[in-house]
């Protein structure tokens, strides 16, 4: 899995490439904590290149959402592949996460 970050005026965009699973979820956890600690409370996770997510990955995203919400920031996802979206649906996460079809759509509301 690769994680890249891109800072814009509106927010920080974290892009995930590859598989987010039990073996590597801590990388994302570390990155998110880093962002929150450095007062970046507006985060968009770009998932278009993420082709697998396990429950450990979902947990990290949920953790991120909870922390940012407490800080009155904004946490959103975008570009979910169909299979990934289905996993979100099964877990019921579609109702609690703000999910946008594309990065462009997401940035319009940030």
């Amino acid at each position: 899995m690769e994680i890249n970050e891109q800072k814009t005026d509106q927010c920080v965009i974290i892009g995930i490439t590859g598989r987010l699973d039990t073996t590597n979820y801590s990388m994302l956890e570390k990155k998110l904590m880093e962002m929150i600690d450095s007062n970046h409370h507006r985060i968009l996770v770009e998932c278009s290149k993420m082709d697998y997510i396990s429950s450990s990955g979902l947990r990290i995203l949920l953790m991120g959402l909870k922390k940012i919400t407490l800080m009155k920031g904004k946490f959103a996802l975008c570009g979910l592949q169909e299979n990934i979206h289905e996993i979100f649906e099964i877990s019921g996460f579609t109702s609690i996460f703000e999910i946008h079809p594309t990065r462009e759509d997401a940035l319009k509301v940030f």
Binding site: S55, R59, M63, L65, K66, I90, S91, G92, S95, I96
Partner: peptide
Amino acid sequence: VFNKPLEERKIGGLGIHF
């Protein structure tokens, strides 16, 4: 796990559900 607001969502327990 469905139909619960964010505050009540537990981090764990998803695996068995899947």
